[in-house]
Nucleic acid binder design. Structure first.
Length: 644
DNA sequence: GCGGATCAC
DNA sequence: TATGGTGATCCGC
């Protein structure tokens, strides 16, 4: 931000932190990171010119394949409310207007208004440091009820532009405005203007919007700042200042940048995308955090997305296939353009920080509280799980987790406490500052969720004569039917096509889609060991960006399509159309389901008869998918936009 | 399946 | 005095 004395801020933060246990731990983490960089540098130094040219060929091929998946047909809009919590608080208490204010407390603040940011106050900064930076800073406690209320108001607006919009958090959303633009004959920029105006009218809050051909770019398209240094943890993305350099380039190809309360439109043209991405710092990309940035910069000297392509041979040489694909796609400005599947929650947790203690009675009491809290949350949502994870943070900020997977599903506080106590006892004596419990590995059904007897289950679906589901038309849906969790179907199954053992996890919900009757989508995982050891980075949301796998079967060559899906060229579309999802209507049909006893008639995936479990799961998957499709089409027919 | 690490908000 | 809570994912083992 303009007017921030960065050096002074840095000095104060350092003075306040120096010597603290937190700071010592941070230094430890940094040392670990440097070690990682050194180790990779050493690995890189071993490569011969021949190795590099080999990997360059692989990289070039991969870039061509990724480029072929580029889809410029959709218009995505990303909305982000400006300093949301702080703005809501000011709306509710206008006397705060114009004064530096932060939402949070002395130990941690959630967000700060723009007046406070001028002093260097940031989200995720401890309050006492913020107070030092800005003695007149007003602290307002967090109040999620308020933020949820205003968030709902904004979402009502978003709904008008894309009924299926994607809420990323209370203050962020993705909208596919392709249809809206076409129907209204408006440009994306005009739609963004109208939407922001409408949000302001409904809430009194301002927001910023980015428009681009994919979600990755839509989110980043108003974050363009070049050469402004790295974003620190907690520094809001809203703080970023646009540099004249990118402004010039971007404005030439796009429209204006203005933040806060601004918008930025990246046209659906490859040139515009490439120009935009060319000088975009890698840290701005979702999924590239502090560590990844340090590695890419420290090992390869990469600072901008464009350099990902320039260093593609090194990237392919040192990283796993998954990581390399992600980095290359970032360099190409590729991102997801489809609407992701609704996902079921996978875990639920409760954790609390307290003043450090080694008093075992006290620690045990905290565990009792946390068990009760977690149990209560689980019961509210009707979840039962069988993996319980205890999280501890020692007084020195070292984090440990200890997990147990039980033979049965539990949710009562007594059961949770019983197992959590066992996990904790093994760690005593210990001095702690945080404890938490996480439940995962949920059972399929949910307790406490009313089951509509008319709603089809897998079992009654199988015995239903007409699999297309006539008689669903009159079905009225209850609240529980439209619950996201109830609708979600997500399976994690591993296949390895050349070995009879699981390798990489393939998430069907994201990588797998039912064919649209004229193409077959196939995903395989590929166990590649290019040059002995590869380094793997953990790329969150990787599938947001790339959705591509290779086959290892010589007979079935796969070609990427524009939608990021893979198409089996050899598949007969007629065959698929003939033996589509309708095949999955009874267990008898499971035999017919496998063409030549090894190929799935719906999607074409190949699974030999020996893969009994996998085949069963695969069959179930299509069945479930089919059910889900039916349910959602019913919902779309019967629900008002609000319910949806 | 477990534990450590990374990331986003 | 004092550096969060929740959820997800990935990797090596």
């Amino acid at each position: 931000m303009e007017g921030v004395d960065k050096e002074k801020v840095q000095r104060i933060v350092y003075e306040m932190s120096k010597g603290s246990k937190y700071f010592v731990n941070e230094e430890k983490k940094e040392a670990y990171m440097k070690q990682k960089v050194n180790s990779m540098q050493a690995q890189l130094a071993k490569f011969t010119a021949l190795d590099i040219s080999h990997h360059q060929k692989i990289a070039d091929k991969r870039i061509v394949e990724l480029e072929a998946t580029r889809d410029l047909s959709r218009i995505w809009l990303h909305v982000d409310m400006d300093a949301f919590y702080a703005a809501v608080e000011t709306l509710c208490n206008p006397s705060l207007k114009g004064k530096p204010m932060a939402v949070g407390g002395m130990s941690m603040i959630s967000t700060a208004n723009y007046e406070a940011r001028k002093f260097g106050v940031r989200a995720a900064m401890p309050g006492f440091i913020a107070h030092k930076l800005c003695p007149e800073l007003i602290f307002v406690p967090v109040d999620f009820k308020k933020y949820t209320y205003y968030s709902d108001l904004t979402r009502k607006v978003f709904q008008k532009y894309d009924p299926n919009f994607l809420a990323a958090s209370l203050d962020e959303a993705y909208l596919d405005i392709t249809s809206y633009c076409n129907d209204k004959g408006m440009t994306a920029g005009e739609v963004a203007e109208e939407l922001r105006e409408s949000v302001y009218k409904e809430t009194g809050l301002t927001c910023s919007a980015g428009v681009a051909p994919n979600r990755l770019l839509a989110k980043k398209s108003w974050l363009a700042d070049v050469g402004k240094g790295n974003r620190k943890r907690g520094e809001s993305t809203e703080d970023l200042i646009e540099s004249p350099e990118i402004m010039d380039k971007a404005v030439r190809v796009c429209s204006d940048i203005n933040k806060p309360n601004g918008q930025f439109v990246l046209p659906n043209e490859r040139m515009a995308v490439m120009t935009f991405i060319s000088s975009l710092p890698i840290r701005k990309i979702g999924g590239i955090g502090k560590v990844t940035e340090n590695i890419l910069n420290g090992v390869f000297g990469i600072t901008t997305c464009e350099e990902m392509l320039q260093k593609s041979s090194f990237i392919c040489a040192l990283f796993s296939r998954t990581s390399a694909d992600f980095f290359l796609s970032v360099g190409l400005g590729l991102g997801r353009t489809d609407m992701p599947q609704v996902t079921q929650r996978k875990s639920m947790s409760n954790e609390r920080t307290f003043s450090p203690t080694e008093d075992e009675a006290l620690i045990y009491q905290k565990l009792v509280d946390i068990s009760e809290n977690l149990s209560s949350d689980l019961k509210k949502q009707g979840f039962r799980g069988r993996t319980l994870t205890l999280k501890l943070k020692t007084s020195c900020f070292e984090v440990r987790t200890r997990a147990v997977t039980l033979p049965n599903y539990i949710c009562s506080s007594e059961d949770i406490l019983k197992h959590a106590t066992k996990l904790l006892k093994a760690e005593l004596p210990v001095s702690l500052r945080l404890m938490g419990l996480r439940m995962s590995h949920f059972s399929e059904g949910r307790e406490g969720v009313a089951i509509d007897p008319k709603q089809k289950t897998l079992a009654n679906f199988i015995v239903t004569e007409n699999a297309s589901g006539s008689g669903h038309e009159d079905q009225t849906l209850t609240e529980s039917d439209i619950n996201d969790d109830a609708l979600a179907i997500r399976r994690e199954t591993s296949f390895c096509s050349d070995k009879h053992e699981p390798c990489e996890s393939v998430d069907f919900a994201d990588t797998y889609q039912l064919p649209d009757h004229n193409q077959t989508d196939i995903t395989y995982c590929h166990n590649e060991a290019e040059n002995g050891g590869t380094f793997d980075l953990q790329i969150d949301d990787f599938r947001e960006n790339v959705d591509n796998h290779d086959t290892v079967r010589g007979s079935t060559h796969l070609f990427p399509t524009g939608g990021g899906q893979l198409v089996d060229r050899d598949s007969s579309s007629g065959l698929i159309a003939e033996s589509g999802p309708d095949k999955c209507k009874s267990t008898d049909d499971e035999a017919v389901f496998w063409l030549n006893d090894y190929q799935c008639s719906v999607c074409g995936i190949e699974l030999p008869p020996s893969f009994v479990e996998e085949r069963r799961e695969h069959f179930d998957f299509h069945l479930a998918q089919r059910l889900q499709d039916e349910e959602s089409s019913n919902i779309n027919r019967n629900l008002k936009p609000k319910q949806r």
